[in-house]
């Protein structure tokens, strides 16, 4: 196996999934975002978004804070320091892969 394929296989699958990548990228650009915003951004159903958020939370990449605002439940999601480092590293990896693939010869 040549290097580009090794690098591809080495990508963090927890972040690389498109919906989770979108969530992580958005969260890295702000302090925190709520459930409704993330749902509008990703177009996911409530159940699917919850599932993705749970996976990211289990991985320690985000922090989910459930609270009440004006007597209504509100879920606020925040990226952790670890999450910020991981998403930055992931984008660098993807960029490097893109560059390497242009020079790659079979």
């Amino acid at each position: 196996m040549t290097k580009p394929f090794e690098d591809l296989a080495g990508l963090d699958k927890l972040i690389h999934e498109p919906a989770r990548l979108s969530i992580m990228t958005a969260l890295a650009a702000c302090k925190s975002a709520d459930y409704l915003f993330l749902q509008r951004l990703t177009g996911l159903t409530g159940g699917n978004l919850s599932s993705h958020l749970s996976k990211l939370e289990e991985g320690g990449l985000i922090k989910v804070d459930k609270r009440f605002i004006d007597k209504k439940p509100n879920t606020q999601v925040q990226i952790t320091d670890k999450g910020r480092i991981e998403i930055e590293r992931h984008w660098k990896q993807l960029e490097s892969l893109r560059k390497d693939s242009q020079m790659w010869k079979p």
């Binding site: 702000c30 302090k31 925190s32 975002a33 709520d34 409704l36 915003f37 993330l38 749902q39 606020q76």
Partner: peptide
């Protein structure tokens, strides 16, 4: 707030 949700800006922003 009810249609698009809430986003808190970074302290830098």
């Amino acid at each position: 707030l009810h249609t698009f949700g809430r986003v808190q800006r970074t302290p830098e922003s």
